[in-house]
């Protein structure tokens, strides 16, 4: 179970907005990357968001470039989960591979507001907005994907498999 405060974004938030291309060559340090999350277009995020918060997107979250820094920055910022109406496919895969819990939940945009507190049960996909009491059902992840996320991402997962 994950509990966190919502940072809400609109539709079609792209990876240039999440992690600007100009920083791709400047740093490979995830802690440094975290400081540039959403920096150019949503400068308030870095100032006000806190580790443990949850990002909620509209449709097609993470569209655009394949840069996984757009997941790394949020993970190292301390974002605990990303939920959206839908994701661009590469972003979705990157989140799984980097071990950042990610869920598709149709209708979530109209059921949570900026600053609401939500409870997420990953195994079942049950989400509760504890601020309003409203409940939602996300699409649960297949078991093998849950296993990758629970192991901490693809690298620890492969390390474990290699040992076996």
């Amino acid at each position: 179970m994950i509990k966190g405060k919502v940072w809400k974004f609109g539709d079609d938030v792209n990876t240039d907005v999440i992690y600007p291309g100009k920083y791709l060559s400047i740093t490979a340090d995830p802690v440094e990357m975290a400081k540039h999350s959403f920096e150019t277009v949503y400068p308030n995020f870095i100032k006000e968001a806190k580790p443990g918060d949850i990002v909620v997107g509209g449709k097609f979250f993470g569209c655009g470039s394949s840069r996984e820094q757009a997941v790394t920055c949020l993970k190292h910022f301390g974002i605990k989960a990303i939920i959206a109406e839908s994701f661009a496919r590469i972003y979705y895969r990157n989140a799984i591979n980097l071990g950042l819990p990610i869920l598709v939940c149709k209708g979530i945009s109209s059921k949570v507001n900026q600053g609401d507190i939500v409870d997420i049960e990953f195994e079942t996909g049950k989400i509760k907005n504890t601020t309003t009491g409203e409940e939602m059902q996300a699409t649960p992840l297949p078991a093998f994907i849950m296993e990758i996320i629970n192991t901490g991402g693809l690298i620890p997962y492969l390390r474990q498999t290699a040992k076996k």
Partner: peptide
């Protein structure tokens, strides 16, 4: 590891973009 990898579909290749960590899995 580039989103515009779809370009190679012009040759009938199943060509898809992926992230860097996922590519490490492919290399392995």
């Amino acid at each position: 590891t580039d989103s515009h990898t779809t370009t190679h579909g012009a040759f009938g290749t199943f060509a898809a973009g992926i992230g860097g960590t996922e590519m490490a899995g492919v290399w392995a």
